[in-house]
Design a binder for these strands. Structure first.
Lengths: 150, 150
DNA sequence: TATAATTACATGTACATACATATAATGTTC
DNA sequence: GAACATTATATGTATGTACATGTAATTATA
């Protein structure tokens, strides 16, 4: 479905205006796709992202703020996402011995297993979503980087 | 800030994978910018979108589902967004005489005034966000359309 | 070193999303 | 036209975002 069909409108001021709407629409489609896939693993997108970040540093645990700065959506409430992962025993949480203000969070073996399964499915999905050649994707990345500069 | 700096990672499988993350990051930046601007008008992004859709059909009111299909984020809960707009007297709501299951929603003069002021500020912001020429924006739109096809 | 400022996290509230379910009105089918 | 299916909206719950505030620990400074 094209953007115009999707939102039943073609009243864009110019190409730049359309691009902003288009980006938000594309992101929504990508996220919706990913969330659907993750439902098979009883994970939300943000829970998946936090697990992925934790596995990246495993076995070293990370404190809340170090997880937060690695998330795309910076205002995500990491303590509450961690609550839900902890209930499912996908992470464990303990106070930092070095700085007792910090809570360290570590992915559990169960968390790694679930993440690995979800990631495998995700990669297949990614191939399917991004209907672009590598050259085209590189071009898209260049344009997005330029758009966001400074 | 580049994507890599923003999420402190450069571990992308390929350009297509990076493009998916990049789109979500760009959309987040655009939305955050817009939401900041709209705070000056005590509106959220979704409230603004609903008002814009209602003004598009004004003075003809729209029912809940006709608003929903015009929103980018299709699962938005239009009745509850309408609740908040109604409290602020930016819209009024009444049952449809033709189909009493439907609730018709119409933007008020106060709603139009607020929307117009917000839209003027928004257009200035849009110019500022999208650091692209018209040709580049057109290219970006073409790539996004291709990515999303079927 | 005592006090002040900062930092890290948790938590409360308002709003939004995602999805299930309830209810009333309309449409369909026999 | 009665029974059933469908549609439109509302509402409940879990999750997440955005932001303000509270509390404890650490750091800075007088």
């Amino acid at each position: 479905m094209t953007l115009e069909e999707a939102i039943k409108s073609s009243k864009f001021k110019d190409q730049r205006h359309k691009a902003l709407i288009h980006i938000m629409y594309a992101a929504y489609q990508v996220k919706t796709n990913i969330n659907q896939l993750l439902k098979n693993y009883a994970l939300t997108g943000e829970q998946y992202n936090v697990l992925r970040i934790l596995k990246g540093s495993h076995p070293t645990p990370l404190c809340v703020k170090d997880i937060a700065v690695r998330l795309i959506e910076r205002n995500s409430n990491v303590p509450r996402i961690a609550d839900r992962l902890e209930i499912k025993k996908l992470v464990k949480r303990f106070p930092s011995p070095e700085d007792r203000r910090e809570t360290l969070i570590q992915i559990t073996p169960a968390g790694i297993n679930l993440l690995d399964a979800a990631t495998q499915a995700m990669e297949a999905e990614h191939q399917h979503i991004a209907n672009l050649t590598e050259d085209e994707a590189a071009q898209l990345n260049q344009l997005l980087a330029q758009m966001l500069q400074d």
